[in-house]
Design a protein around this nucleic acid. Sequence first.
DNA 1: GAGAGACGATACTAAGCAGTATTGAATACC
DNA 2: GGTATTCAATACTGCTTAGTATCGTCTCTC
Lengths: 202, 202
Amino acid sequence: MSADTKQPKTRSRPTRAQTRARLLQAAGEVFAERGYDRASLDDVAAAAGLTKGAVYSSFSGKDELFYALMAERIDERLGLVAEAVDRQNTPEAMTSDVGSGLVRLISSQADWHLLFIEFWTRAVRDASLRKEFARHRRAAREVIARFLEQQATEAGVDLPAPADQLAVAVLALSNGIAIEQLADPDSIDPSTFGVILSLILH
Amino acid sequence: MSADTKQPKTRSRPTRAQTRARLLQAAGEVFAERGYDRASLDDVAAAAGLTKGAVYSSFSGKDELFYALMAERIDERLGLVAEAVDRQNTPEAMTSDVGSGLVRLISSQADWHLLFIEFWTRAVRDASLRKEFARHRRAAREVIARFLEQQATEAGVDLPAPADQLAVAVLALSNGIAIEQLADPDSIDPSTFGVILSLILH
DNA sequence: GAGAGACGATACTAAGCAGTATTGAATACC
DNA sequence: GGTATTCAATACTGCTTAGTATCGTCTCTC
């Protein structure tokens, strides 16, 4: 993946991958700001410093651009969670740390949640998209469920409910709190998520 | 409000209030099915058996129609919750009953959650709408928080966390579970909500 | 360095839709 | 009972925007 792509000394035109990446990033910003339906491809292209021609050269249309963006971001985030989980070895203090950490994550990544919810609304209304969405969700649940089981085993205690159910509750709480927080930042104390998590998990 | 509106023996035309109500109901269906941006006023009017002229005769435009719909539904729901809370006098079995009851409510009122989330996405992006939204949310939190406090006092126990925080968690969980459930019904066991609630509240 | 093909800019098309203007009919008022 | 007014249907306007067609230019291969 390194030596067989020849580089001319100086390129006056970006590579295909670069253009694609710029479009995806611009799409993330513009879709989050305006909402998918109200954002035009001209807007997205302009935000990337390009034109609609570039969009149709890299993607089959508006939908595919959005789906590609979401697929990328969802994978990224699942990776982040899996990583964080691997690193996490404090069995007790975990919950509140994770909780307040997530609260910070939520407010610093407001865009993500807007995009995610927008994607969800489309998935709910489109059977094949919903299937894809459910697949990702299942993967996320499993990462969390296994983590919980592992922590419980190490601590020598039983989980207060099936790991699956706890995992889905953690995900639900995360989205639910993001919703409240984005609507009214004052409604969520930074410790809330952690407090609730520790109630659920201990 | 009753005697001073004269009724002709037989009306060939519905009253203003009736057409308004039909439009609101149709808007609820069509917006939920297609999403706000993709639903046209012609669609809504047709679903009500009317035309766009009726819409503009009763509302100033598409936005006002949507906001009127949401204001109505939000009030309805707050009333329902307040009522349910007043009736509820079983201090222990409450949580699982309320939980599974809410799960049933969620799946039977999928439309409501789609509309609500759509309204939320608009509120997040519009300052004045967000303020309104936050006001409703605060009212809901207070109903729940007072209920929790009352239950705790009657049972002679302390709440495991400030009532405000517990209340916002209940709301968050409700939305979060609705999201998971609408995306993948299998992910949510009917008992999940109740189980988690009892973990949080005991 | 010449020909071929990839990329993306520009110009255009067609469709959808919010909102307006106008008209016809039902009801209220005198 | 006749006139004014309210209400909603119809017809129309203007604008936005996804998607397409075309054309110029950069880069890769030989």
